[in-house]
């Protein structure tokens, strides 16, 4: 229990250990701690910022979707209009074609009728000549009365 040299030894040991601690232990440890504090602080700030930009991005996405919807509606409307137009065009074409066909048929019929009429006319004139021959009971010069026959045939 006496005071002895151990006291000085311990003081010396303490100076050495404190020196080592000051030189080699404390600076890296406290630096790591402070760096981590800073990192956590920055991480929290970044998280806040991320949250904020997330909200902003969601709003932006909503806008884009709304815009896209509007465009889609527009395109759909256009498509409907175009379809109606095409149908209308088709109808008009159909009408025109029908008219054309009809008029062509009419013309043909007319032509056909005319031809039949011509033929009939020929035959009628022949019949008329024969009838006249029989009626007059004498030979009539066909050539002399051709103009009359022709006129007759014309009236048929």
């Amino acid at each position: 229990m006496d005071i002895n040299l151990t006291l000085i030894g311990q003081s010396f040991a303490m100076i050495v250990f404190v020196g080592v601690c000051m030189w080699k232990l404390w600076p890296p440890l406290i630096k790591a701690l402070e760096d981590r504090q800073k990192q956590i602080e920055e991480g929290l700030a970044a998280a806040d910022k991320g949250q904020e930009s997330l909200v902003r991005a969601a709003a932006e996405a909503d806008d884009i979707v709304a815009e896209a919807r509007k465009q889609a509606t527009g395109i759909l409307d256009q498509a409907h209009a175009r379809a109606n137009e095409i149908v209308a065009d088709g109808k008009a074409d159909g009408v025109k074609e029908r008219e054309r066909q009809t008029s062509a048929a009419k013309a043909e019929i007319e032509q056909e009728a005319n031809r039949a009429r011509e033929e009939l006319r020929g035959q009628v004139s022949a019949i008329a000549v024969a009838s006249a021959e029989k009626i007059l009971k004498r030979e009539i010069d066909g050539k002399a009365h051709e103009d009359i026959l022709g006129k007759l045939a014309q009236e048929l």
């Binding site: 005071i3 151990t6 006291l7 000085i8 030894g9 311990q10 303490m14 100076i15």
Partner: peptide, 14 residues
């Protein structure tokens, strides 16, 4: 060591 008065005194004197 801390039950030795020399050790504790050594530190407190520093």
């Amino acid at each position: 060591p801390s039950t030795d008065v020399n050790i504790t005194f050594g530190m407190s004197i520093a």
